[in-house]
């Protein structure tokens, strides 16, 4: 399904999204049942296409629903600051993993753990949450059509304008 009006992700937004955040995806079934799954990292292509990595065993409903509807929502949240954005697209599809994606997922696990341990979560807990056999990883890719600021507060839910991300971005994800 072609996307008429892709949302331009500016470099600051990309830096934020790839900074080791909490990432969750959502879609829905033909019967109107919402599905969701936690993601283990994100890749953003220079073309603006966004790919999230999921555990196949966990994502069965979401992948089925996204394959049918092509509709996908992905929310990125920074636990220490609660800064949160949501991207939505209508052309989601599963693609094979690319070389480098496994390294991307491993780097994500480390970055997310670094972000959560200072908040009082133990590294074993975070790593258990993000554990998944390499051969079960799936790549779900889409073109964002809309982005929303979901940081709790008066502006929550407002469409995100390019470059409108307030404050300094979090530290880069590391390696």
């Amino acid at each position: 399904m072609p996307t008429a009006n892709p949302f331009r992700l500016d470099p600051e937004l990309v830096r934020f999204m790839t900074g080791g955040l909490s990432i969750n995806t959502g879609s829905g079934s033909a019967e109107g049942l919402p599905s969701q799954c936690r993601a283990f990292g994100v890749r953003v292509d220079p073309t603006g296409r966004v790919t999230v990595f999921l555990a196949g065993a966990q994502a069965a409903d979401l992948l089925r629903d996204a394959a049918r509807s092509r509709a996908l929502a992905v929310v990125f949240s920074d636990p220490p600051t609660h800064r949160t954005i949501q991207l939505k697209g209508r052309d989601a599809r599963v693609e094979p993993l690319r070389p480098g994606d496994l390294a991307e997922v491993r780097a994500y696990r480390e970055a997310f753990t670094r972000r959560l341990v200072p908040l009082g979560f133990t590294a074993p807990l975070v790593l258990a949450l993000l554990d998944c056999p390499d051969d079960d990883l799936m790549a779900l890719t889409f073109t964002p059509e809309a982005a929303f600021d979901q940081t709790p507060g008066a502006h929550a839910g407002a469409p995100l304008l390019p470059g409108a991300l307030d404050g300094a971005p979090p530290d880069p994800a590391g390696p």
Binding site: S27, P34, V74, K88
Partner: peptide, 13 residues
């Protein structure tokens, strides 16, 4: 996660 009447997903904390 919710699913709107027009078939758009939403994910929130």
């Amino acid at each position: 996660s919710t699913w709107s009447a027009d078939g758009t997903p939403n994910v929130a904390y």
